[in-house]
């Protein structure tokens, strides 16, 4: 019992940590590829937190697994759109990062 709870708590803490790391990288790192990866790491953090909800004392709850799988599908779609957009940004502006100030004309 105690070990199961411990595992659950480790998952919870790691999930929160990954989420925060992802937010940090998303805000701080300029390169768009790193930003897309950061979003994926945030997603992994959320999925880990969801998985702790699945571990009960006696029964394993299947619903969080379904949620995580759906979440992964959504994350893959979003990453695909983000990567495609990143390539177009690089083709148009010559660099894969966001300019600090939007040019006026």
């Amino acid at each position: 019992m105690i070990t199961e709870n411990l595992v659950g708590e480790i998952y919870l803490v790691c999930g929160a940590l990954l989420f925060v790391l992802g937010v940090h990288a998303l805000v701080v790192r300029p390169h768009l590829l790193v930003k897309v990866l950061a979003v994926n790491i945030m997603g992994s953090g959320v999925f880990m937190v969801l998985l702790t909800a699945a571990s009960g004392p006696d029964l394993i709850d299947p619903v969080p697994h379904a949620l995580v799988i759906t979440g992964i599908v959504v994350a893959v779609c979003a990453s695909a759109v983000a990567l495609a957009l990143m390539l177009k940004v690089r083709a148009a502006t010559g660099q894969a990062r966001l300019p600090s100030e939007a040019p006026e004309d």
Binding site: V39, A78, A82, L85, M86, A92, T93, L98, P99, A102
Partner: peptide, 12 residues
């Protein structure tokens, strides 16, 4: 360029 940069920012 501006539209693509704006949509990237919006997406993130």
């Amino acid at each position: 360029g501006p539209a693509l940069v704006a949509s990237m920012r919006y997406l993130l």
